[in-house]
Design a protein around this nucleic acid. Structure first.
Lengths: 191, 191
DNA sequence: CGATTTTTTGAATCATATCAACGTACGTGG
DNA sequence: CCACGTACGTTGATATGATTCAAAAAATCG
């Protein structure tokens, strides 16, 4: 039951069988088909989601109506809008399914209860955010002052598997360039 | 003693007098003058730092030798390179003093000890990283697909106080544009 | 006050975006 | 199972916005 989530928890903390069961009991599985939305702009996010299987991505829509991919979510990752979840303010993100998914969801109340009652759960969350923060800062650092071509090359090195599962125009959006520019870069790099 | 750090801790968790004293006892104060370095590229970061007073900023040097500001640190903020601190790998960042500082530093061993022995300390750290992560994701979201002028306007709204304490060319670097471009934008926006 | 740092300005250049058209792959209903 | 429609990727021509280079003006520091 929920092997992905268990593996993820055990990677970072040790849990007694009782704690393990207590944590799992709060999650609700949810199946989603390609093109469905997990969340939409304006929603107040009620549940955070762990990706057990499949792939999703989140994007925002800017003042000019253009869409921008903010992050991807594959097996073993968390996806959603933590800003809206924690503040209970309307989300500015859409989260759409890329490949049919099974996600495990958890309410804010459950999350807070687990934080209070199961110390290793809080430790897990601290490590999760700590790593996510460091990774995000690297993403910013790496893109500062790089040409689109350099950003692409690094992205290709760091996440080769993404190219087999995500259409190029979404990767372009994530990188902050247009699909047209990405296409030209790829031709150049290939030669 | 250390009013900034105490205020920061109490904002997020409640501590018994004993816990408070235990936490504070692990910090070592350090005074730094303008233009001094707290860390330099290549260092393996041994201590994390809380800014009690003053201002600093961190920057990286890219493959073309250009410098890019990654973050600022004012009173009540943490500053440093968490990547190097947690992994004990060489840092890619320089952290330089903008206004003479008093920082409070904490070793990795102390940090780990406090996490293990003082539960509210772990809670504080989880909340700190959680907020930092959400704030950083907003920074990325905001910069995706915005013109330099829009990035400037938002920055001005969100952090007006930074303009009174940080030279414009560092702000430009943080925003990912040249000082020349920032100057032109400001002329436009002012008119 | 003189020296250094920071900010502004103009002109030329370069990278990426935009617009528009076309080719290709995919999958859905007939 | 084929045909049509939609989504995706590529290409060329042109436009735009930011950078670079160079110099001067303004602000700050010792």
């Amino acid at each position: 039951m929920y092997p992905g989530l268990l593996h993820e928890l055990h990677k970072r903390v040790t849990l007694s069988p009782g704690q393990e069961a207590a944590i799992l009991s709060h999650f609700t599985p949810k199946k989603l088909k390609k093109r469905q939305f997990l969340h939409q702009e304006g929603d107040i996010i009620q549940r955070m989601s762990f990706v057990e299987k499949g792939a999703l991505y989140s994007y925002s829509t800017d003042a000019h109506g253009a869409q921008h991919v903010v992050q991807f979510g594959f097996e073993g990752w968390w996806i959603g809008d933590l800003y809206s979840f924690f503040t209970q303010k309307p989300s500015r993100l859409n989260v759409e399914v890329l490949e049919s998914c099974e996600v495990l969801t958890l309410s804010l109340e459950s999350h807070e209860l687990l934080l209070k009652t199961i110390p290793p759960y809080e430790t897990y969350m601290r490590i999760l955010y700590q790593n996510a923060y460091v990774a995000l800062l690297s993403r910013i650092e790496n893109s500062l002052g790089l040409s689109a071509e350099e950003i692409y090359s690094r992205f290709l090195e760091q996440y080769p598997f993404i190219f087999s599962r995500v259409p190029l125009h979404l990767i372009a959006s994530y990188m902050g360039i247009t699909p047209v520019t990405l296409s030209r870069i790829r031709r150049q790099v290939a030669s």
